[in-house]
Design a protein around this nucleic acid. Sequence first.
DNA 1: CTGAAAGCGCTAACAT
DNA 2: ATGTTAGCGCTTTCAG
Lengths: 349, 349
Amino acid sequence: MVTMKDVGKAAGVSAMTVSNVLRGNDNVAPDTARRVREAADRLHYRLNTTSLSARSLRVNTSRKASGSRTIGLAIFELDRPYPAQLASLISQTAEERGYQTVVQQTRIDEHNERSIIERMSNQFCDGLIFSSSRLSADEIEQLSNHRPTVLLDDDRPQQDIDTILTPSESGSQAAIEYLYSQGARRIGIVGGNPDERTDVPLLETYHDARHRRLLGCRRAFHRLGLTWSEDRIITTAWGDVDARRAIHEQEAKVRDCDALYCMTDTIAFGVLRGLHDIGVRVPEDMRVMSFDGIAMGALTVPALTTVAVDIELIATQAVDLLIRRIDDEPNLGRQRITVGYHIERRESA
Amino acid sequence: MVTMKDVGKAAGVSAMTVSNVLRGNDNVAPDTARRVREAADRLHYRLNTTSLSARSLRVNTSRKASGSRTIGLAIFELDRPYPAQLASLISQTAEERGYQTVVQQTRIDEHNERSIIERMSNQFCDGLIFSSSRLSADEIEQLSNHRPTVLLDDDRPQQDIDTILTPSESGSQAAIEYLYSQGARRIGIVGGNPDERTDVPLLETYHDARHRRLLGCRRAFHRLGLTWSEDRIITTAWGDVDARRAIHEQEAKVRDCDALYCMTDTIAFGVLRGLHDIGVRVPEDMRVMSFDGIAMGALTVPALTTVAVDIELIATQAVDLLIRRIDDEPNLGRQRITVGYHIERRESA
DNA sequence: CTGAAAGCGCTAACAT
DNA sequence: ATGTTAGCGCTTTCAG
C-alpha cells in the first residue's frame, strides 16, 4: 500500500506536505505542490480512509462514536431462496439506513459460526445479525465482545439477546387448519423429521424453526381431533432435490395422504415435482401447502399455497433494532419480536 | 467514548489486560478477568472497530502470508438463484482453502461498488472477487490499492485484471443450434433487450453477459441462415416475475414463435409459468431453453433444458487464482479463463 | 513555506 | 500473570 510517506519520499518532501497538498491547503509552494501531485499519480496513491477515521476519534470527540457503519450478517445457506432473499433484504435495508452489510455463510456449522462471530466482531462490524445459531447466548455474548447482536429465529428461552422470530408455530397451525377446512383429513408433514437424538422430543422449551413448526402442526391436529402419528411424517433434508427424492422413496406413505404440508417452500418445490413424477395431481389428488412465502412460489405449476411470512418486516425489524443498539439507546429492554404472516391462497391447495 | 484504558483504570489493571480479557485470551487470572468484565459492563464499554482496522493495516502489510485470510466477494443480487449459488460455492471453496469469505451485495450500483471496494480493500480483505463491475479496470486497480482482484464475467478488452468468464457467447450459439436441430425455425429471445442507448450496438468489443449471449445468438442465426430481427426479441427485466409478465404483455409476439431462448434460467421460470397462463404447451407448442444450469431447473414442470455452465469450476477457478495472487506467485501473467458448459437436455426442448 | 513530534484506540511482541 | 513499548496512516500543533 502506498502511503503519504512514500509519495513524500518520491517527491522529496515530507508526508506532512503531501497531506497539505492533497487536502488543498494553500500553504504550499505551487512548484512543490505540482511535484507532489505528480508523484501521487505515478504511485497510484489513494487516501486511506481507515486512518482518517482513526484520527477523527481524536478530533471529533464530541460526536457520537460513528464506527465503520458496517453490519455483519451470518446466515446458514446462501444457495437457498429463503435465506438468500433475507440476506438481500437486510442488505438493502441497512443500505437505506447508511450501513453496509457483510454477509458470511455458516453452513450451520458450530465451529464455523464461532470463527465467524469472532472475526466479524473483533474486526470490523458495529453489530451482528445472526441467523440460526448453534451457539449459546453466553457464548455469543462472549465472542462478540458485548457488541450489539440480533438473533433471527432463535427462541431458546434462556437467551438474553434481541431476537426476531418467524411465526413458525402459529403459521404452521394455521396451515394445517386451512388444509382441514379444504377437506383434507390425512395430512402428511414433509421435512418434519423427528430428532436424531431421541432424548429431544417436541419440548415446548426447545425451539428451532423445524421444532416450532412441528409444534404448530401437533397443536392443530389436536384441536381438529386428528390423530398425530409419525407415519404421517415424510422425512427429508431441507433441500428441493432432497424433497423430490423423498417423495419417490416414500411413495407408499405419500399416497396414503390427501394433503402434504411442507416445512419450507423449497421443500414444496421438490414435492410438487416429485408428485408430478409419480403421477399424483395437485390439487385434485393431493393438496400441497408450505411455509415461507418466497416469490418463486407464485410461478410454479401449480402455484404454491403457502404461509407467507412478512420477510421484509423481518429484515427491517432486525436492522432497525440493531441500529438502535449500536446507537446505544438507553432504556431499551430485550426485544423479542414475532412478525406476522398470512395464508397466500394459490393453486396447490 | 469509553476506552480500554478507562476500563482498565476502573478495574485497576492496564489496557492490555482489558484487551486480553475481552478477546478471550486465557492468560488472565479468573478473578482479574471478572473484575475487568464487570468494569466493562458498568461503563458500557464498546470495542472501537476503527482503531482495529487501523491496526490491521499493520498486520496485513507486514506479513503477507499471515494476513487475515479473508476474501471479499462483491456480487450484484443475492436474491437471484444464480449469483446466490455462486456466492455460496465461492464461500465453500474458500473455506476449504482456509479462507473466510465476506459477501457484499452491490445491486449493480456504481456508487455502491465504489464504496464497497474501498472499504473491503482498505480494511479487511487479502483479495477481492468482483462480479459484474460497473467500474473501469483503472478505477478498480486504484480503489483496491493494487490488492489482488479477480473479476467474474467482465470481458471489456482493456481490462488488465484476471477474469473468469462464463461461456455466454458459445453457449448461446449452441443453444440456438440445438433448438434448430429440434425443428425450431422461429426462435424468440427472451431478455435480449436492445440497449437503451442506440449508440451501443452489438459490438464485439463491448461484452457484458447479455451482450455476449446476444452475440452468440446472432452468430447462430447467421450460420443457420435464419434472419435476425428485433421482432423476435421479447424484452424483459431479468427477473422471474418480470419475465412472466412479459409473456402476457407480448403475447402476440410470443405466439409467433415456435421456440424461446431465455437469457437466464430465472427468466425461463417466469416464461414457463407465463406460457402456462396463456395456454401454450411446452414443449409441444413451444420449445423453451435457457442459460445457467441452476439446480432448480430440474424441478420445474416441464424440467428445463438449459446451457449448464460449470458454475463450480467458476468458483474454484476464481478462488484458486485469487489465492495464487495473494501468495504473490511470480511469473503469473494475466489470466482470462473461460469455463465450459454442456447442453443439459431435459423436458422443455 | 516546510517538517518534526505527538497522538487517535488498539494489540503483537517482548519484558518483568 | 501482568505491564511496557511501539507503531498502524494520518493530521493538528508548533517550531524552524
